[in-house]
Every structure is written in structure tokens, then in C-alpha cells.
Design a protein around this nucleic acid. Structure first.
Length: 541
RNA sequence: UGGGGUAUAGCCAAGUGGUAAGGCAUCGGGUUUUGAUCCCGACAUCCCAGGUUCAAAUCCUGGUACCCCUGCCA
């Protein structure tokens, strides 16, 4: 259930007063893929509706034919469904379905002398609008007769004018302190073909005109949007007050979601795609819904994240850590454990004539996940990172002439290093059965050569080097070149499951797009360098 | 003296006149054959200055900082 926030409070008040059924909507423009920021809005709108036994529409805000594409409709629906929200023919709506109604209301406003056709050029409109400190000037076309306005509006609709020639404006107040009220444009000519209505129209309503009317038509009670629309609210209310419509929704605004080290702007993601920094909208390094799905996020992780961060009007930037912790929290519970070596170093065990095996749990706390057989043979792989010739830098792996625990099975002592051209080819070790005196030794993971499978591992890291990539103009200069690293190693034989925790490495997901066996790292394990833990790590035998 | 918003810990965020929830991060400690998990503990007088009150993060006055607004984008 959604946590109570300031919007919930408003709704509770409204329900008390009006005893009305509430209705919300999520209104994306189909001009790109959905991202984590949309997920927050979806979470708010759908869950508020659920909490107060109301309804929530998905409405495509498709009033600008230049930017919108059919493909995005499909992707958006797919993503919302994947997030776990119900979409049916009854709650999927299109602003473009209301084009005739918008047109009707526009004519109504003309007849009320509240709208006029302006022949001013774009430049002049801009100039006449004034600035924060400079009042606007009325257009010379402002006081034309209703008849003339109606005539030109019809001509405009017929297509006798070109883009930018004329437009329909509301007659509000050119001296308003709120720039959005200085005779806003509500209809413009666009000759670009609309992805849905095709060539039926060449005039299109602007966001300000279409949105409030669509809300009213759908009988939305609470129209929830982001903070930057606060200035538009008086216009939203003005339009609904001045057309003949019986339902009046209320607009409320919340702060957009920002996350450290990430970017969600569609424009900037496009730059990344065009420059081949990422493979596409669903690249697992992006926080698009499809990217996150690829990566190994689940709908519940995203839900829990949205729940955790709350809803307020305070502009904020959420630490990426919180998202990652939500991910780990769930994966820790659900993932089967396995061992995989990403940077293999061969180890020859001199005193192991036969193999040794043991049945070990697939999950440390969840017995139901069962056990698997692991086999130690005289040739195994350990990770290069877990071996050093001499001790330095708080190292906690295997060192020449020292011992280390092998995860689950016994103890190893390094006797020799076999080198060629100063490069380590393999090391030789002696095996010891586990005894209590070895309890405090550090531990490493391993796979045996004979009983493991060759695999690729794709390590995904954050895309940007800066905490607030938004503040950098040229984002291409702050790309983390190590955001995708491919490693070749070995993994234990495994059952048909897609997500695993490779012990001491992180959570990985089987990547079905590759021909060779490939795992993507969803997220690393947390690294906690606590002093208590360091104490334990000091003893070396 | 343009207008509209927002200020509570490093990051989020509850609290709406009765003595500062919770999460993440950080720092201590404990359990553990994953430096994981789990468990325990520490961590703010609420942007500033005045005022009202027995009592103020909450009310009043005056400041300060940051965000949004000059698309025929949404």
C-alpha cells in the first residue's frame, strides 16, 4: 500500500467533503521509453487510485505529431504492464481521440470572445510577450470580430496556411505576472503526419489546452504532475472555467525524481544512443524501465524503491545507493548461490589424488532451496584478485606460503608460483582438511576445472563519473569507460535458473541474447569494511 | 518589491503548538566457512534573526538560499 503523502491528505479531505470516487491518470507523451522517473509517477497515480478505491487511466499525451511514434505506445504499455499495473481497453486513453472536442471547445472560446487568431510571426509573438520585468503588449489582431476569427480558424483547419503563419490564442492578460497567461497559444499548424490520426488534422492543440480538457473529459479528479507545471495551473483552471464543461479536476504537483550518477532526460539518452555509448533504450546501464528489466530488476524492487523515497514538493536528488539496496535486499532473499571465477588463475593441488565432494546449501538461510554437489579436484581455478605473492594493502586472499580457506571445502596452502616471462601461469598448493584452528582464516571461492563451464561475465557499472551528470553540458565527457567490462571465466554447473548470486562477487543474470554462455552482473555485493570485520581478517597461518 | 515554489542530519523523509518517526550513508560492536546476510548500538534543538506562548520545527514579522517561468515542447 502506498505510504501517505501530502497528496493522499488532500484526497482524504476531498473524499470527506465531496464523497466522490477519485480518478487519476498517468499521461506520458509517446516520444520515448519510460524511465525510473515515470515509474515514480506511475506508482503515485495507480497506487493512489487503488488505495482510495478509484481508477487510474493511462493517457497518451499525443498532441504533437512531430515527436510521437507508434512504437513508443507499444513499449510504454509493455513497461507499465510489466510493472504490474492493470491496463485494459477501458483505461488506456489517447488525447488524440479528443481532437474534435478540443476543436469544438476552441470555437466555443472564440464565440465567447476569449480566443483569437493571431497573424503575428513567431518572432513578434515572442517580442510582444515581454519578459519577467517587462509587461507584454497586445497583438494588433487581438480584437478581431468573432466572425473573422471563426473564418480564419476554419481556414487554418482546412490547411490553407503554412506552419507558423497563424495560430489561435487565448485572450487572457498580456500584463499578467504569470507568463503562461499572456495570451497563450492553444492551436498551431503542424503539417507533420500524426502517427495515429494520419492526415485528418493539420492543426493541433497545445499541451495547456488539451491536457485540462482531456482530464475533464475523463472525469479525472486529481491531476497529478511535476513541479514545473505549477505556473501552468492558473491556465489549466482558466480554460476549464471558460468552456462549457461540467467536471473540474484539480491539478497537484510533486517533485520530479533525480538520482545520483544517472540521467533520465530523453534528449540526453538519445545522445548516448547516437554516440554508441549505450546499445539502445533498453541498455542495462540505463534506468529506463526496459533497461532495468534487462538488468535484472523486478517490479517489486521498483515498487519498494518508490515507496521508500516518498512523495513531496522538495526538489531532491536520491542517492543511487538506495535503489541498489532495494535491489540487493530482494536478490539476497531470492537468489540461489553459486561459485564463479571471473579472472581465473589455475591452481594445481599436489596432494589430492582423488576428488572430494560435498553437498552444500543453495542458500545460506533458505533450506527450501535445497543443496547441490560441489567437487574439488586437483586442478581448480581461483580469482587472480585473490592471490598475491607478498602481503600488502590489507589483502585478504591467498599469499605464497600462507593458508586460506576454500569456500565449503578445506584449506589450501600456496607452495609455489609457476611463472613464464614474469607472468604467473599457475600456482601449486597443498590441501588440508578443515580443522577448527583454521576457523579464522580468510576465505576464497573457487571452481574445479573439470566440473565447471566456460562463461563470459559482463560487469555493469555506473555510466557516469559525476554525481550529478545533469550539471555537465557535454555528457560525453563524463562517461565512465569502465561501465561495461567483459570477463572470461568459469562457473559451476547450474540448474535452469536465470538469476544467481556468485558468492563474493555479486548477483548475476543469465543473458539470453548471447550465443555463448554469458552472465550480466546485476549488482555487486555490498563491501563493508567494518573494523570488527578487519580484526577477524588479520590472522594468517 | 516580477510571479510561482521549497527549506528538518551527508542523502531522502515523517511530524501541522506539548519537547524531533523511519530508510539509505557513516561510525562502533556481535554472529557467520560469502569482507554478503543477520543482530545490537551511536548519529539533528528543524535556513537565519526577532516576536507571541507556560510551551514553537509547527503561529506572527523581517531576512537569506535554492528551484521553476520569457517554446507555435510537454
Amino acid at each position: 500500500m502506498i505510504k501517505k503523502n501530502f497528496i493522499c491528505k488532500i484526497i482524504e479531505e476531498d473524499i470527506k467533503k465531496k464523497n466522490k470516487k477519485i480518478k487519476t491518470r498517468f499521461p506520458p507523451e509517446p516520444n520515448g521509453y519510460l524511465h525510473i522517473g515515470h515509474a515514480k509517477s506511475i506508482y503515485i497515480n495507480f497506487n493512489i487510485a487503488k488505495k482510495y478505491h478509484g481508477e487510474c487511466n493511462l493517457r497518451f499525451d499525443d498532441t504533437n505529431p512531430q515527436k510521437e511514434k507508434k512504437i513508443y505506445i507499444k513499449k510504454i504499455i509493455q513497461d507499465i504492464k510489466w510493472l504490474g499495473y492493470k491496463l485494459t481497453n477501458n483505461n488506456i486513453k489517447y488525447a488524440s481521440n479528443y481532437f474534435t472536442l478540443y476543436y469544438k471547445y476552441a470555437k466555443q472560446l472564440i464565440k465567447k470572445k476569449l480566443a483569437y487568431i493571431d497573424h503575428l510571426s513567431l518572432q513578434k509573438i515572442k517580442k510582444y510577450r515581454g519578459t519577467f520585468n517587462l509587461k507584454g503588449i497586445n497583438s494588433p489582431f487581438r480584437n478581431r470580430s468573432i466572425k473573422q476569427n471563426l473564418f480564419y480558424f476554419k481556414q487554418m483547419k482546412k490547411g490553407v496556411y503554412n506552419e507558423g503563419d497563424i495560430c489561435l490564442r487565448l485572450k487572457i492578460n498580456m500584463k499578467s505576472n504569470n507568463l503562461t497567461l499572456r495570451d497563450p497559444i492553444i492551436y498551431r499548424i503542424k503539417k507533420h503526419q500524426h502517427y495515429k490520426t494520419k492526415k485528418q488534422w493539420c492543426i493541433y492543440p497545445t499541451y495547456d489546452f488539451a491536457h485540462c480538457i482531456a482530464d475533464a473529459i475523463e472525469k479525472i479528479t486529481h491531476s497529478i504532475c511535476t513541479l514545473e507545471f505549477q505556473n501552468n495551473r492558473p491556465l489549466y483552471e482558466w480554460i476549464l472555467k471558460n468552456i462549457n464543461i461540467d467536471h473540474i479536476p484539480q491539478q497537484y504537483e510533486f517533485a520530479r525524481l533525480n538520482i545520483t550518477y544517472t540521467l533520465t532526460s530523453k534528449r540526453k539518452i538519445n545522445i548516448l544512443i547516437k554516440n554508441n555509448v549505450v546499445s539502445g533504450w533498453d541498455d542495462p546501464r540505463l534506468l529506463t524501465i526496459s533497461g532495468m528489466r534487462q538488468r535484472g530488476f523486478t517490479p517489486s524492487v521498483i515498487y519498494n524503491f518508490c515507496k521508500l523515497i516518498g512523495v513531496s514538493k522538495q526538489e531532491s536528488i536520491i542517492d543511487i545507493n538506495i535503489l541498489e539496496e532495494c535491489l540487493r535486499k530482494e536478490l539476497n532473499i531470492s537468489s540461489y548461490r553459486l561459485m564463479a571465477v571471473l579472472n581465473p588463475l589455475k591452481v594445481k593441488i599436489i596432494n589430492l589424488k582423488k576428488y572430494i565432494y560435498k553437498y552444500v546449501p543453495n542458500h545460506p538461510h533458505d533450506i527450501k532451496k535445497g543443496k547441490r554437489k560441489i567437487i574439488l579436484t586437483n586442478e581448480i581455478y581461483i580469482d587472480k584478485k585473490d592471490f598475491q605473492e607478498n602481503y600488502k594493502n590489507n589483502f585478504h586472499g591467498l599469499i605464497l606460503n600462507k593458508k586460506i580457506k576454500l569456500r565449503y571445502l578445506g584449506v589450501l596452502k600456496c607452495l609455489n608460483i609457476k611463472k613464464k616471462y614474469n607472468k604467473i601461469i599457475y600456482i601449486t598448493c597443498k590441501y588440508y582438511k578443515f580443522e577448527k584452528k583454521y576457523k579464522t582464516l580468510n576465505i576464497i571461492h573457487w571452481v574445479s576445472k573439470k566440473h565447471s563451464i566456460k562463461s563470459k561475465f559482463i560487469i555493469l557499472n555506473q555510466l557516469f563519473l559525476k554525481k550529478k551528470p545533469n550539471e555537465t553540458h557535454d555528457i560525453l565527457t563524463i562517461i565512465n569507460k569502465k561501465s561495461l567490462i567483459i570477463k572470461k571465466g568459469y562457473v559451476e554447473k547450474f540448474q535452469k535458473i536465470r538469476i544467481f548470486q556468485f558468492e563474493r562477487e555479486g548477483y548475476f543474470k543469465l543473458n539470453k541474447n548471447h550465443q555463448d554462455l554469458t552472465f550480466n552482473r546485476i549488482i555487486s555485493l555490498k563491501k563493508n569494511l567494518n573494523k570488527t570485520k578487519q580484526k577477524h581478517a588479520k590472522k594468517k597461518i
